[in-house]
Design a protein around this nucleic acid. Structure first.
Lengths: 310, 310
DNA sequence: ACAATAGTGTCTCTAAGACAGTATACT
DNA sequence: AGTATACTGTCTTAGAGACACTATTGT
């Protein structure tokens, strides 16, 4: 599905195929899933505690057969781009992310005569702690609908999207080999066992330009101006401020002052004290907070906005 | 040439067509171009001085025949998405923008009811003052190559991804193609005379969801954290700080303190005093500045972040 | 002289960060 | 008791904004 069946000689003149690739971040790999480590040389290092993990799938056909790649594939005629991103994450990781946002559209041209051109729209997602525990959603598609799944679709990239000034040149190199990313038949069903989780810090060689996409997703994740509003989606429904701070430290890569983080976070007014307290910790128990939903993924100015043009 | 020729009944099952729409901002309409005003009721108002202007084209076929729409059209098999955006701006406005950045990919299934599905990648652009003066580019191709045309392409939004564009040597888009462009092209193609400039504050009813796209482009433009680095592209090669401030005020929609603006702008360290001075003004002449090209594509927080994955 | 903008100096206020100090759980 | 984290208070400093004041042109 995804491609028009014509002879290869006509392919360069076809409209480009549209595919989606997704970078799905989680604080840790799901229990029981296999992991890989693409940086074997650094093992002697102190291994800076927390990193972010993303699911990868192994390609089963050319080009880049055998290489790891981001989950994704062609968009179907009856689903939105965000739908495609969601489907690819569910298919690869068997979880539903708690946040989804469009990253960028890569539209390089490829001069190869017998390959159809490909436009890839990249998404990034956040997978919550609650979705990672074994048995939560392993039933393939017996997945219960998440209580309040919200994701940003449409023009919701938000304010302060990271700038890049003067990048010269064209983006023709963004897709080295447009071949059939995701497979010419467009199926997302990867055989189990061809999925692995990998630390975003130690990726293996990825297919296509997926390493660039991951790097870009990390850069956006770290732009904390917008990130503060959604960081809690890595956690469960209730959490302590210390846990929330750990998320920030994992994303940012450095430690932040607990006292100042507390004050700033509470000053945002988006956390609600549940009145409950943490139990079982070997220290003073912390208050448990919930995130105020009405304050969440909406951004100050750029809002989905009413459709004016009928 | 953007569509595959099949019967309409088969269209829903085709891969989506890929089109580009561009919001090209300028401080004023080019001299001699026709303008329209989509908000007839408000004329008695004080008309708050400066607004931003964008070129629109009138659709000559269904759907939305006769409505105004953003310049754009299907991407060709041998051009990148940014190339398509540039071509559409040149064709509609006969100018080459001084800045170009991808905005968002709109891929909803509802976008075209029974026609072929359409994925639109939106771009926004800045047109400089120097490109607007009559005669500068009306000779169809007498346009002198802009001294330093630079635009953002590909994944340049993020940090560190830029490396990929350095090796694509040819900046093909700096060669302004005359707007001839054989007429057979896709759905957004328009003959001359169906172009008008319109204030972004008083748009008419636009085709498709183009009103949303404009709104989103304005929102991004106003997120001033990133905007400060590119605001000068609305102006000529040299400019006064007062002119630069006027640009900010037009974009933001409110006045800013001249003294503070001066201090903050100079503190960025990106302006170079040319030593020259403004002449002919009925007041004390201002210093003329130039923008430092090498300046700060650097970000406060997220920095290039050495590629870890090999 | 007057109008108008360029440009400087300075005050206030807020928020970020550093960091000392107290509180309360577990072992 | 010792330890580890939760939580509070306070000091310093950088930057944004308000605003008074001087400088220099054209009319």
């Amino acid at each position: 599905m995804g491609f028009v069946d014509v002879s290869a000689s006509e392919r360069p003149y076809l409209p480009p195929a549209v595919a989606v690739s997704t970078v799905a971040f989680a604080l840790r790999p799901p229990s029981g899933e296999s992991t890989i480590d693409g940086s074997p040389g650094l093992s002697g290092e102190a291994e800076s505690s927390a990193t972010l993990w993303i699911p990868l799938v192994r390609r089963t056909r050319e080009p880049f057969r055998g290489r790891w790649a981001l989950p994704g594939g062609p968009t179907r005629w009856d689903e939105t781009l965000a739908d495609t991103a969601l489907r690819s994450i569910r298919s690869a990781a068997h979880v539903t992310p708690r946040y989804l946002e469009q990253l960028y559209a890569f539209g390089g041209v490829e001069r190869s005569a017998d390959a159809q051109r490909l436009v890839t729209i990249a998404y990034w997602a956040m997978i919550g702690e609650g979705e990672l525990t074994a048995g939560a959603s392993r039933g393939s598609d017996a997945e219960p609908a998440p209580p309040q799944f919200r994701y940003r679709a449409g023009a919701g990239v938000g304010v302060g999207v990271r700038r890049r000034w003067d990048d010269t040149g064209t983006d023709r190199s963004s897709v080295p080999r447009p071949g059939d990313e995701g497979g010419a038949t467009g199926e997302h069903e990867r055989p189990r066992g061809n999925v692995a989780w990998c630390s975003a810090d130690r990726l293996p060689e990825l297919a296509f330009d997926h390493a660039d996409i991951v790097e870009y997703a990390l850069a956006r994740l770290r732009s904390k101006t917008e990130y503060a509003a959604v960081a809690h989606r890595f956690l469960g429904a209730v959490f302590t401020i210390g846990q929330l701070r750990a998320v920030h430290e994992a994303v940012l890569g450095y430690a932040v002052d607990p006292a100042n983080f507390r004050r700033q976070t509470l000053a945002r007014g988006t956390l609600i004290d549940t009145g409950e307290r943490e139990t079982g910790s070997p220290h003073r128990p912390a208050r448990l907070y919930r995130f105020s939903n009405d304050a969440a993924p909406e951004f100050p100015d750029s809002r989905p906005s009413t459709r004016r043009s009928s």
